[in-house]
Simulated scan of single mutants.
Amino acid sequence: MHYSKRDPDVLHIRRVVGLPGEHVVVSAGAVQIDGQNLPQGKMGSNFLDEKWMRYRDLKLGPDEYFLMGDNRENSFDSRTEGPYARDSIVGVATTRWYSAKGMTLGSLAKSTP
């Protein structure tokens, strides 16, 4: 979990895709870390209109992380907002809650990443 750069009072759940010092390249068909493709699984396409995907090829600094949302086609994440500093990551999602009716069944507790 991290605080949004667009709205600092809002927490988002994103996957950590790139770690400090890694070279991240994002295209519509793949995410590469240091030249190796990451498995996509059920994440869908990485496509965002190129006007939004400003950060698609970068080397992360010593305190930078590349985060991506699971809803890849509609997520404001490191592709649009750039890398996140370690201190902006404030928790780890440890549980998934599902509901057949689309209702929220509970909240995620903050924990130390």
Rank of each mutant, 00 (worst) to 15 (best):
P83N: 02
D49T: 10
G35Q: 01
P39N: 03
R14V: 14
D70I: 05
I89H: 07
D70F: 08
G29D: 11
Y84E: 07
S88P: 12
M53Q: 12
Q36G: 03
D34W: 08
F66K: 04
H2F: 08
G69K: 03
D70H: 01
I13K: 00
T112I: 15
G44Q: 12
F47Q: 04
A100P: 15
L11R: 12
P62I: 01
S99N: 10
V90S: 05
V31Y: 05
T80N: 06
I89R: 00
S75W: 12
W52S: 06
I33G: 09
D7Q: 00
L105R: 05
L60N: 03
M43Q: 06
G21E: 04
N71L: 09
P39W: 06
R6Q: 14
E81N: 03
R96F: 15
R79A: 07
P8T: 06
M1W: 11
K101E: 05
A100H: 09
S78Y: 14
R79N: 13
D49S: 05
V16A: 03
P62F: 01
V16D: 06
G91F: 11
S27G: 10
L67V: 14
P20A: 04
E73P: 14
S111D: 12
D34T: 15
E81C: 00
V10K: 14
F76H: 12
L48A: 06
G18Q: 02
F47R: 00
F76Q: 01
V92P: 04
K5L: 14
P113H: 01
M103F: 13
V26W: 06
M43Y: 15
L19K: 04
G82H: 02
V90W: 09
R79P: 14
D49K: 06
G91P: 03
D70C: 02
L11Q: 09
E50A: 12
I33F: 11
L67I: 15
M103H: 12
S45K: 02
H2G: 04
N37L: 00
